[in-house]
């Protein structure tokens, strides 16, 4: 099924090559117990994900905490070893590459921006050192002087003063630190940036600054983003396609407009209706679907469709059969028995 779609799109636009392809990706974490630390079970954080990322697009990944979206992001960039499946980046299978091969083949092209700008910068290094490090590791530029030039240039790119190189991270505000995080990700001129909750820790006015910056940079450097966030409004703003995750599975994936205007999966519908809206006048138009209960434990996911325990449209089949993730027309993928 996945292949037919690829074929179709190849006919449509040959220029739109996939920068990243993910096939049946799984990441399980062992649960160890007892004095012998025997593995007694697995947390199925990511449980069989298929997706394709096109060059130059922004793919938004949304879901609640514990749905595996961050684990997926970290597995894609090989910060976690995948348990199963394939990650194909620019046509190369990077699933089982060693650390040194990774550094040669993809680290330069794939970078990450982290959520917490306070925890992701080394407090004992100056800004200059933080930004020098990736350039040195990858032996870019001839000497320190050229590297310093590049660092200053990077700072200007992200809207910071080039004289900041001697300052330490604690001297900066949250928004400025996130700019530093972005500068670090840009240092190696990557093609793909995975942004994991990059704006969640920031105040709204600062959040808007960073989102605008990320959009400008995308245009300037032709970047591809995988934008992971729990904030549906932010994702609606920045993404071109959106994937919705629930309990380690991708339940829906479609163009932004399709997801937000005509969501198919009951979980997506509930998620969208739960977002508090700012304009009161619109409030009367929509009905809120309040889901009962909490997210089930990923160590023991429900049988059949993982969402059936909370689904308002549950049928008998949902308890027994796992729905397939399939195209319902115009690249709108959904995993739900309602659309079989």
């Amino acid at each position: 099924m996945q292949q037919t779609v690829t074929k179709m799109e190849k006919c449509e636009a040959k220029s739109q090559v996939n920068i990243l392809e993910v096939r049946n990706l799984k990441k399980y974490f062992p649960i160890k117990s007892g004095i012998l630390q025997k593995t007694t079970g697995h947390i199925k954080a990511v449980d069989g994900i298929n997706l394709e990322v096109k060059r130059g697009e922004t793919l938004g990944i949304v879901g609640e905490s514990g749905c595996g979206k961050s684990t997926m992001g970290r597995t894609l960039i090989r910060l976690y070893e995948p348990t199963e499946g394939e990650i194909i980046f620019n046509g190369n299978d990077i699933t089982h590459l060693s650390e040194s091969q990774l550094r040669k083949l993809m680290r330069k092209q794939m970078q990450m921006i982290f959520q917490d700008p306070f925890a992701s910068l080394n407090p004992r290094k100056t800004l200059g050192k933080i930004l020098h490090e990736p350039l040195k590791t990858h032996q870019l530029y001839a000497d320190n002087y050229e590297r310093s030039e590049r660092v200053a240039e990077l700072l200007e790119t992200v809207g910071l003063n080039r004289s900041f190189t001697n300052r330490y991270p604690h001297e900066f505000s949250g928004g400025q630190r996130q700019r530093i995080g972005i500068a670090r990700a840009l240092a190696l001129q990557p093609e793909l940036i995975i942004a994991d909750e990059a704006v969640s820790a920031l105040d709204v006015s600062i959040q808007a600054q960073i989102i605008n910056l990320m959009e400008d940079l995308q245009e300037e450097f032709n970047l591809t983003y995988i934008f992971i966030s729990h904030d549906l409004s932010v994702v609606r703003h920045i993404a071109s396609r959106v994937g919705v995750m629930y309990l380690g599975n991708l339940v829906e994936l479609a163009n932004k407009e399709d997801i937000y205007i005509e969501p198919l999966h009951p979980y997506t519908k509930a998620l969208l209706s739960a977002v508090p809206m700012i304009r009161k006048k619109d409030l009367s138009k929509r009905e809120r679907i309040v889901l009962r209960g909490d997210l089930p434990s990923p160590s023991n996911p429900p049988s059949g469709c993982v969402f059936h325990t909370r689904c308002p449209a549950k049928m008998d089949i949902c308890r027994e059969v796992i729905p397939t993730f399939k195209d319902c027309g115009s690249s709108h993928f959904v995993a739900c028995h309602l659309y079989e």
Partner: peptide, 24 residues
């Protein structure tokens, strides 16, 4: 006004967010 315009809307439609420059 700046605060309200900084918030991306779930209904979409805004092409660029109006951010407030600087910090508190």
């Amino acid at each position: 006004e700046g605060l309200i315009d900084s918030v991306p809307l779930i209904e979409g439609a805004i092409t660029r967010l109006n951010s407030i420059p600087g910090n508190v």
